Simulated scan of single mutants.
Amino acid sequence: MTKKLYSLMLTLLALSGLMSSCSKQDDIVFDHERQQFETRADRILLEFIAPFGTTADEEIYIIGAFNGDSTAIGQQSYLLTKAPNSDVKWGVYLDPNSFVGGKSLADGFRFYSATQGMEQTVKGEKAIHNDNPSVGTFTNVWGQRWESYYWQGGEAPEPAHDGFCVYVDDQTGWNALTLYMWGDVNNLNGGWPGMSVTGTWNHDGVSWKYFDMGAANSGLNENLIFNNGGNGVQLPDFNFTIDRNIYLRITADGVEEIGAEPKVKHDGFAVFVLDDTDWDVLTLYMWGDANNLNGDWPGMQVTGEQTINGQTYKYFDMGEANTGLNENLIFSNNGSSQLSDFNYTIDHDVYLHITTSGVEEIQP
């Protein structure tokens, strides 16, 4: 028997075995569909296959008629847990005994990301799941898109407010932030330590905490006292007439009015760098799916600088046309010194801290 004929026979045998295995009743299970959490006899286990662009530190909640819908946001029992051995899966255990109003999962549910908004369909409509598994079972739920996919410029629109609003860039490091007010009306919006944060809004690279003043309180002159939830630390009074939105930066030392940071328009996604190298000239060379991307060695110059949460970052705009490419980033002192490669897929903004010792991804 010739080698060619022998090889042909082996190939046919392999194909025959593959066809035989595919003809079995068992479905093919892909890695991202495999169960990641243990089934519990007293709980429903849902494993959420998150939409593209979900980050590992995402804060995701399940909401629906069964748990009061958006009122469940922030409740620990409805916060999903990231699967330790999967980049795409989050899990949650549900107790039907805690469901409200006689509702079940069949009445509709969806998922909410604290940074990327509500889950939506590929058509930009409200996503609704109606799976209704039994206690003691495991079910996969496929996510489609986050609301952020449809945000202009990738940024959430400004929330609707009750009256004027106090926006706060909180640099105190406190575990809790509350706002007490006295003046034309004492104990406005709550007795000491005052009102809690109404919500957050990520805008122009700043995570603003905000306090809605209430439409009925427009025109009042109040003294604002920011404190750490009444736990012994407070800042000096800041006087404010409630006739406009105001933007403040607070630190452990005091309160400063700063206004909204000017919006920076980027060309595609950006690499933000907190530069602690003391190099004379920071450059970025890239190789990977496209070598010499945005410039031959030593690479591209810094595009600009932007202040985010009180920190000044240098940034490199990747270019809209380069979205989706996988590149290895090499930072150097204009070619005379360089750091180890940092791998990055251009499908999100990335924040990096660099020193002469290396590169570390950080949260802004």
Score class of each variant (00 low, 15 high):
Pro193Ile: 07
Trp287His: 08
Phe99Ser: 10
Pro84Met: 03
His348Ser: 12
Val302Arg: 01
Gly199Gln: 15
Asn132Leu: 10
Asp289Phe: 12
Asp276Met: 07
Thr139Ile: 05
Val197His: 15
Thr121Ile: 05
Lys126Phe: 04
Gly299Ala: 09
Ile225Gly: 01
Asp170Met: 03
Pro133Val: 04
Gly154Thr: 07
Gln75Phe: 03
Ile62Gly: 08
Met286His: 01
Ile60Glu: 07
Asn322Val: 02
Met195Pro: 02
Glu261Asp: 02
Gly358Arg: 07
Ala216Met: 06
Ala14Trp: 04
Ala270Val: 07
Val350Leu: 09
Thr283His: 03
Gln363Cys: 08
Val197Ser: 07
Asp347Glu: 04
Val29Gly: 05
Tyr344Trp: 15
Ala260Lys: 09
Asn292Tyr: 01
Leu284Lys: 12
Pro157Cys: 09
Asn294Pro: 07
Lys126Leu: 13
Met1Phe: 10
Tyr112Trp: 13
Lys126Gln: 12
Phe331Cys: 01
Thr241Ala: 14
Leu13Ser: 13
Pro51Asn: 09
Gln35Ser: 09
Val122Cys: 02
Gln234Ile: 09
Leu329Ala: 09
Phe48Gln: 04
Asn223Pro: 04
Ala83Lys: 08
Ala114Phe: 12
Met195Cys: 15
Phe331Arg: 00
Thr39Gly: 02
Arg34Ser: 11
Leu220Ile: 09
Pro84Tyr: 01
Ser336Tyr: 05
Asp26Trp: 06
Val122Ser: 14
Asn326His: 11
Glu256Thr: 15
Asp267Leu: 01
Met300His: 03
Ala56Glu: 14
Ser23Val: 07
Phe211Met: 10
Ser340Arg: 03
Gln35Leu: 03
Ser357Thr: 03
Lys82Asp: 03
Gly124Trp: 14
Val271Met: 13
Thr323Gly: 06
Gly199Ile: 13
Pro157Val: 10
Asn322Phe: 05
Glu59Ala: 06
Glu59Asn: 02
Asp184Ile: 06
Lys314Arg: 08
Glu58Val: 10
Ile354Trp: 00
Leu80Val: 04
Asp276Gly: 10
Asn85Cys: 01
Asp237Cys: 01
Leu177Met: 12
Met118Cys: 00
Gly335Thr: 07
Tyr149Glu: 09
Ser7Ala: 13
Gly154Val: 02
Gln338Tyr: 11
Ala83Ile: 11
Glu59Ile: 14
Trp151Ser: 04
Pro157Ile: 12
Gly68Arg: 14
Gly154Trp: 02
Ala72Asp: 10
Leu79Thr: 09
Gly183Arg: 02
Gly154Tyr: 01
Leu94Asp: 05
Thr251Pro: 04
Asp289Asn: 15
Asp131Val: 00
Val168Met: 14
Asn334Asp: 13
Pro262Leu: 05
Thr356Tyr: 09
Tyr210Glu: 14
Ala176Glu: 13
Ala41Met: 13
Gly17Glu: 14
Thr178Tyr: 09
Thr356Gln: 13
Phe240Cys: 05
Asn67Ser: 00
Val255Met: 12
Cys22Pro: 01
Asn228Lys: 08
Thr323Arg: 08
Gly229Phe: 11
Ser357Asp: 14
Asn333Leu: 05
Glu58Tyr: 03
Arg249Cys: 02
Leu79Ile: 06
Glu38Ala: 15
Leu179Thr: 07
Asp243Glu: 12
